[in-house]
């Protein structure tokens, strides 16, 4: 059974718009059959892209789902064989659902755009 470890920086109940400014991350593991194994939230003492990268390496994360990320950290994580799905916009739940169905891509906007003027 294959298992993947995912990290999502959060801003409230949404994917954080900035990787470097996130102070809360959610980590979970998912099997190739779509069942969740591990589920935890980590609160960082302060926002720092370096510390977040360190956490990602220490936790042996396979995939990150985030908003904006600087090229420097994006390339570093790629080099460390971490899959980065960046510029993702949406709530945590909608992102998880889409990811577990295997359809989430970088740049996806999962947002209810119903708009009342």
């Amino acid at each position: 059974m294959m298992e993947k470890k995912i990290l999502i920086p959060l801003f409230g109940d949404q994917v954080a718009p900035r990787f470097d400014l996130a102070t809360e991350v959610h980590i979970f593991s998912i099997t190739d059959k779509g069942s969740f194994l591990e589920d935890k939230t980590v609160v960082l003492p302060r926002a720092s892209a370096e510390q977040l990268c360190h956490l990602i390496i220490m936790e042996k994360i396979d995939t990150i789902i985030c908003g904006g990320i600087e090229d420097e950290y994006y390339k570093y994580l790629k080099w460390k064989k971490v899959e980065v799905l960046d510029s993702v916009i949406g709530s945590y739940d909608s992102v998880i659902n889409r990811f577990s169905s295997g359809k989430l891509l970088a740049g996806d906007i999962l947002f209810d755009k119903e708009f009342k003027s």
Partner: peptide, 8 residues
Amino acid sequence: MILNTSYQ
């Protein structure tokens, strides 16, 4: 991919 694009 953009979902629910009911906005004009």
